[in-house]
């Protein structure tokens, strides 16, 4: 990968100072025990099966055709969708429109290390996953040989960033009036042993991906995105090591959780449409008023001319 020398890339072998703090040297069991207390309450006060509260809005980027901003506590994501344009560098005609997705983690978004400027493997994997998730939801036959650009910027990463990105992209696509079959929502779960953390924070995800000493323990992270009305799964990824029952149970809970998000997204969309409608009405009224004023002035002048 060629380095961009115009930017200050920092020394290659620098390490975060946090590595030398007391917190860092703890072993797996200590970190694991800390995630959830005896009453089944997580570090941030949530129950095990409680997702974080979601804030969503549209019209974030004025230049884009459609855009959305999603905030789940400390996970913050912006997504913008641009008008369809002819697919560049393509010789053959393609019957289906293309989706071009790019996920970018801001350099300062991660708690552990600084993100490099050039897209790394994780960002590329996220982009591919996002495209895979969105493709079944969009009516791609409506814009043959064209592509829609979808850009996601993760401002702060505190776990479940792929599901946040998918939720934001679904909302932004709907806001951009790209024809879609259904509203797309996504959710993740982190599993460590018998605990499953719904909508995990970054720390929970990190521990779930670490390998426990005991070779029997289940551990892993699952992300699933669904089209709830059509009862279809558009994307499913799992990392770690889980037995089958664990995966099937997780599919069940994730399906329910994904459908719980739908009404919220619908509410945001309805409010953005009504807002748009009201704005248009107001503009129309203003235009009418102005026209009436001009007409009145014209009459006045005509009278004056006739009089003169």
């Amino acid at each position: 990968m060629p380095l961009d020398y115009r930017r200050f890339n920092g020394p290659e072998d620098s390490v975060s100072y946090k590595r030398f703090t007391k917190n860092y040297i703890r072993n797996y069991d200590e970190i694991h025990k800390e995630l959830v207390n005896k009453n089944g309450v997580r570090k941030d006060g949530r129950a095990m099966d409680e997702a974080r509260s979601l804030f969503a809005r549209t019209d974030m980027v004025s230049q884009a055709k459609g855009s959305a901003y999603i905030e789940m506590k400390k996970t913050k994501v912006i997504c913008s969708v641009f008008d369809p344009r002819e697919t560049p560098h393509q010789n053959e005609f393609s019957q289906l429109g293309q989706l071009y997705c790019e996920v970018k983690l801001a350099p300062f978004s991660c708690p552990r290390q600084r993100r490099p400027h050039a897209p790394d493997a994780e960002e590329r994997a996220l982009s591919v996953a996002l495209r895979q998730a969105l493709e079944p939801a969009v009516c791609r036959h409506m814009f043959p040989n064209y592509q829609v650009d979808i850009f996601v910027l993760i401002l702060e990463h505190d776990g479940s960033c792929l599901s946040a990105a998918i939720n934001a992209a679904g909302l932004a696509l709907a806001d951009a009036a790209v024809p879609m079959y259904d509203i797309i929502t996504a959710c993740s779960v982190a599993i460590i042993g018998e605990h499953s953390f719904l909508d995990p924070s970054e720390e929970e995800e990190f521990v779930a991906l670490m390998s426990p000493e005991n070779t029997e323990t289940n551990h892993g992270v699952i992300t699933m995105s669904t089209l709830s009305e059509l009862k279809q799964v558009s994307h499913f990824t799992q990392i770690g090591n889980l037995d089958v029952e664990c995966v099937t149970n997780a599919i069940q809970t994730l399906e329910q959780e994904c459908s719980k998000i739908v009404p919220n997204i619908q509410k945001v969309l309805v409010s953005s449409v009504t807002k748009c409608f009201k704005q248009k009405q107001r503009l129309d009224e203003e235009a009418k008023e102005r026209e009436a004023e001009l007409d009145a002035k014209m009459e006045e002048w005509k009278k004056k001319l006739k009089a003169g």
Binding site: L96, N218, I222, F236, N241, L242
Partner: peptide, 10 residues
């Protein structure tokens, strides 16, 4: 056990 699952295709 499942160590990874993913989907591919549109």
């Amino acid at each position: 056990k499942c160590s990874a699952i993913s989907m591919s295709g549109p």
